[in-house]
C-alpha cells in the first residue's frame, strides 16, 4: 500500500485535507509516536498529513490572563522556557523527563496530549493549571478542558479532522508554587510508574490554599486528586497532614500491574509522591521573600 504525504501550508488546508481523506489519514507533528505505531502494528495510514509547516502553532505566548502553548511547541521549548521558572517551574520539570534529548527536540506537546498515554508526563501539571485545549475542525473551533479531552488510554475527544491548535491555562492568582516528581526505575529515559504534580498557594494566615494535585500513570488517565486537595485546604503540611493526604491520594489510584511495577507498588508510590510534591511545593513557596520563587 502506498501512503500519501500531504503538506498543508495553513490550518484550513490541514483540516480540509483530513476531512477529504477521512479516517484513513493521520496527522504527524514530531513523529515520535506515529512512526513507532506504524512499524509495530504494520498498519499504515492512507495519508500522512504533515503539520510542521504550520509554524504559528510552535509558539509560547502569554498575556495578563495566562499562557498559550501552540500544539507544535516541543518539549525542548518547554524545558528551556524562561517564563516557566518560578511558580510555573513544574512545567519545565515535567517536560525535561520525557524521553531523551533526541525525543524532546522534536516531540510536541500537542502530539503528547493527542496520543493520550496514561503516562504522559505533561498532563498532571496541565490539569493542575486547569488547562483547556483548542481544536479546529471542519465544523469550527472548540475549547475543551484537558480533563475532559483525554477520555482514557489512547482515547480523546478529537475528531479525525480536528487539529489541536493550542493549550491554554490561566495563571493562578497571587503567590503560588508548583512541583512535579516522577517515579521510575531509573532517572533517564523512563516511562513513569507514577507522575505527580502539585500547585499550592499560601494564605495570609500561613496555611495552604488553592491546593491542586494531579497524578498520572496510576490509572487509565491522569486525574486531579479532589479529596486530597480538599483535605489539604487551609492546613499546614505537618507530618500527620501529609500522611493523611498521601492516603487519600493512594485511595484515588486505580493502577495496573505491568512489567514496570505491580499495582500495589504503584499505589504505595502515589501516596509517597503526593506527600513529597506537597512538601516540595510548600518549601518553594515558603522560601525567602518569594517574589522570585512564586511567579
Amino acid at each position: 500500500m502506498k501512503v500519501e504525504f500531504l503538506e498543508p501550508q495553513s490550518l484550513q488546508d490541514a483540516v480540509a485535507m483530513a476531512k477529504a481523506k477521512g479516517v484513513g489519514a493521520r496527522f504527524v507533528a514530531g513523529g515520535t509516536d506515529l512512526v513507532i505505531q506504524m512499524r509495530k502494528t504494520g498498519v499504515l495510514p492512507e495519508a500522512i498529513i504533515n503539520l510542521q509547516r504550520l509554524r504559528a502553532l510552535g509558539e509560547i505566548k502569554h498575556d495578563a490572563d495566562g499562557f498559550s502553548l501552540g500544539a507544535l511547541v516541543t518539549h525542548r521549548q518547554i524545558e528551556s522556557e524562561d517564563r516557566f521558572l518560578g511558580g510555573l517551574q513544574a512545567l519545565r520539570e515535567s517536560a525535561c523527563v520525557i524521553g531523551g534529548h533526541q525525543v524532546r527536540n522534536v516531540a510536541t506537546l500537542g502530539g503528547n496530549l493527542c496520543n493520550a498515554s496514561p503516562a504522559a508526563d505533561m498532563v498532571p501539571i496541565l490539569l493542575c493549571f486547569n488547562a483547556d485545549v483548542t481544536l479546529v475542525g471542519s465544523s469550527g473551533s472548540r475549547n475543551i478542558p484537558l480533563a475532559a479531552f483525554i477520555e482514557g488510554p489512547r482515547k480523546t475527544q478529537r475528531a479525525h479532522d480536528e487539529v489541536m491548535t493550542d493549550i491554554r491555562f490561566p495563571k493562578p492568582a497571587g503567590k503560588f508554587a508548583s512541583a512535579f516528581l516522577k517515579g521510575g526505575r531509573r532517572r533517564a529515559m523512563e516511562i513513569s510508574i507514577v507522575a505527580m504534580a502539585g500547585v499550592v498557594s499560601m494564605s495570609a494566615g500561613g496555611t495552604m490554599t488553592d491546593v491542586r494535585l494531579a497524578m498520572g500513570a496510576a490509572g487509565p488517565k491522569a486525574i486531579r486528586l479532589a479529596q486530597a486537595e480538599k483535605f489539604l485546604e487551609g492546613k499546614v503540611p505537618s507530618k500527620a497532614v501529609l500522611e493523611e493526604a498521601g492516603k487519600l491520594a493512594a485511595a484515588a489510584a486505580s493502577p495496573i500491574d505491568d512489567v514496570r511495577a505491580s499495582a500495589s507498588f504503584r499505589r504505595h508510590l502515589v501516596g509517597v509522591y503526593a506527600r513529597r510534591v506537597i512538601e516540595l511545593g510548600w518549601n518553594r513557596i515558603s522560601e525567602a521573600g518569594n517574589d522570585r520563587s512564586a511567579a
Binding site: 504525504f5 515520535t32 513507532i36 504533515n50 531523551g100 534529548h101 533526541q102 525525543v103 527536540n105 529515559m189
Partner: peptide
Amino acid sequence: CLEAECGVCTVVVDGKSVASCTMLAAQ
C-alpha cells in the same frame, strides 16, 4: 531499538540531536 529509546541512531538535524528511527524522512 527503532523506538527512540536507545539513541544509537542519533543524527543531527538543523543543529539538534534527533532519533533518526522515529523521524519521517519526508519531514
